[in-house]
């Protein structure tokens, strides 16, 4: 449900940038979203369309880069890829993992006119 708030956050950033960098239309918004960020992509896409209405980003295309999650496995001493926070190490099945990435929620770039 907080996808709506996230889109409002995105719009705030876009509007601040529009003033600063003097653009009037956003054609594309590129986001980095980690698989552990708790963001439901389809809900985000839906909310994006609703929230951007009437703004400089009304017609913007939303592009989402999904970032995979990585963790450091202590028993294996190496970085492994996981899909969920509670996943075991795919090599040794230990839960002694330190998650190092995958919770990103970032506006990467804008294509503007």
């Amino acid at each position: 449900m907080h996808e709506m708030s996230l889109c409002e956050g995105i719009l705030q950033v876009i509007e601040a940038e529009a003033q600063k960098q003097k653009f009037t239309e956003v054609k594309q918004v590129v986001l980095d979203i980690g698989v552990l960020s708790g963001v439901e992509i389809s809900a985000l896409e839906f909310a994006f369309e609703v929230v951007m209405r009437g703004s400089v980003a009304e017609n913007a295309i939303l592009k989402i880069n999904q970032i995979e999650a990585q963790a450091w496995c202590m028993p294996c001493s190496e970085t492994v890829t996981i899909k969920q926070r509670f996943d075991a190490c795919p090599n040794c099945e230990s839960y002694q993992l330190q998650v190092s990435s995958g919770d990103e929620m970032k506006i990467k770039e804008l294509e503007v006119d």
Partner: peptide, 14 residues
């Protein structure tokens, strides 16, 4: 006229 603006901002930055 299009240009890319790199933002690299956290969505929850505010």
């Amino acid at each position: 006229q299009s240009r890319m603006v790199e933002i690299e901002q956290n969505i929850l930055g505010k």
